[in-house]
Write a protein that binds this DNA or RNA. Structure first.
Lengths: 180, 180, 180, 180
DNA sequence: CATGAATGAGGGTTCATTCAT
DNA sequence: TATGAATGAACCCTCATTCAT
């Protein structure tokens, strides 16, 4: 599904790639959609682990923790998973049409966003945390889309740095805005 | 295609919605894909006009012009076009798989991004403008995705304000970062 | 469908028998079920014509008209249509499960039964006509089933005569019962 | 099978309803068809018992015994088994296509019919008994079909009475016909 | 420029049946 | 006896595309 998209990934091909017979796929998954839902869960799980791992080795304060979260999604190192990113973009597109996919996607996004909001909340007051977290999260999603759909457009390696500067600006209590 | 997605939007249904016969659609478009490519062009055109209109009525300096650009994509007023946003998200997902769509998408994104980069360049030096513009553009794309795939998640009306604050932070010469 | 039954009559086979491509069958019939519904209509039409024709050439009184109706369904002559009978039995079985088929079947049966009831009503009072007509109609249906499912069981040619005697008994005002 | 029809009653579902595993069903029945054949036997057995029970408590003469037989199949009381009737209609439809089912169905019908013929033979001479019994049996089958496929059409409770009057007419030695 | 019937490949899904355990 | 994963054929249905008119 990451390679071909949801519709063009046929059950027959999925089965073949997994070394299964087409019938067996339907023995384990009632519908094709459930394969996608399972993928959502898998990616969500992997994402949570990445965040957890990054936070675990973060020594700094609240700001550093927010940055660790952003790095977990955007760092381009050995652990970058371009296929997972492509899968995630595919899922978000399917979430527009399939209610069940939307529900699963929504749940994952809410959980991640809640986590980021919590981290942001340690720096800012709660009232602004929601919008700030949502903005940073949107930036992550946007980088996902652009990095897969228009490869080469984003200056390589710039994503993490840029989003961190965005975070810095948003988390700055007396804001750049104030100084204008 | 905005409603059903590319694959599920059948030529027959498209024709019906347009008051045409299926055969006539193929008289004007060699392949189904061309309908999508035409949609890309249409949306791009509309987007350019929105930006142009916003910039035309902007009185402020360079910073205000950057903000006008951001507003053109994210302002939630009478001229909001949720269906166009859904179409755009669909297009970006198709760009992952179909080379021709990718090319068209890429072209549009590059043009828009170049425009934003130019506006940003009036504030910052050229060297940082690219990454900053890319970051802000990614945020816009991300808001597009989240607003259509998880409606209700983004605090209503917060997008423009948040992205403006992000811009302010990024455009601030001695940056919040510097003060840390 | 008359030959193989509803489930085992595949669209591919139906198409082939009709000299059509499978896709074309679905161009004219939304679902396989609609083919069956069309068959119901066709059989009903043919049935009505048979009754009409028999009644047209009947010279006798009300009793003869009832008998003409019965003959239209059970006479075993040149115009016997064993395949139509098999189709009708198949339809009645499908009517048990498929609501749409049931509705179509019900409509046809009600119309035929109403006609018979009217004919019977000319002999008996209205109040008993319903039950008598229903009984004779049931006998017709039963002969249909038995003649196709257990060929050779029914003494050849006995159906019409027997059901006419049944009718005579039921239509007899002072009934055989009375004399017991 | 009574609920869904033969084809749509999957082994998996049958197994589940019986609290068995699909594999075990095939341990006891070589083919799915055998499940249907077993059902035929079961229904036949139950039918024979019903007739036997009715005859056992019948005090009257030959005519009463014929009526007892008819009541065994059509009486609508506490012991009515609509599901069994639906099953029987299903079986008769399958008998049209599957030779083995036809054989089983044929055997059961012949046995029942022979019994009825015997009872009728005690009133009439042997030579007419066959056709009369077949007619009455056909009526029973027809009521089965109509009562399940078009519920509400047959005046409730009218079946037994009507078929008894039919029997009376047929069994009347100097027949209604004679008096016409 | 326009219609809409026609094609045929391909996809999701079901399911009787098998079989290792 | 019993399980339930596994198979693979078959089926209904969809749909982009073609084409005679």
């Amino acid at each position: 599904m990451a390679e071909r998209g949801y519709e063009r990934a046929s059950i027959a091909e999925i089965a073949k790639a997994a070394g299964l017979s087409p019938g067996l796929v339907h023995y384990h998954f009632t519908q094709k959609q459930e394969v996608l839902l399972a993928l959502v869960e898998q990616l969500a799980q992997r994402g949570r682990e990445r965040v957890k791992a990054r936070l675990a080795r973060t020594k700094g304060g609240p700001r550093a923790r927010v940055e660790a979260f952003l790095e977990a999604f955007l760092a381009t190192g050995d652990d970058a998973e371009p296929e997972a990113v492509a899968a995630w973009v595919t899922i978000s597109a399917e979430a527009l049409r399939q209610p069940e996919v939307r529900a699963a996607y929504d749940k994952v996004v809410r959980a991640d966003l809640a986590h980021l909001e919590e981290l942001v909340g340690e720096v800012l007051g709660r009232e602004r945390a929601r919008a700030v977290a949502a903005g940073l999260f949107a930036t992550i999603q946007g980088y996902f889309v652009l990095s897969t759909a228009t490869p080469g457009l984003i200056p390589p390696g710039s994503a993490v740095g840029t989003v961190k500067r965005m975070a810095a600006g948003l988390l700055d209590p007396d804001g750049a805005e104030a100084r204008r």
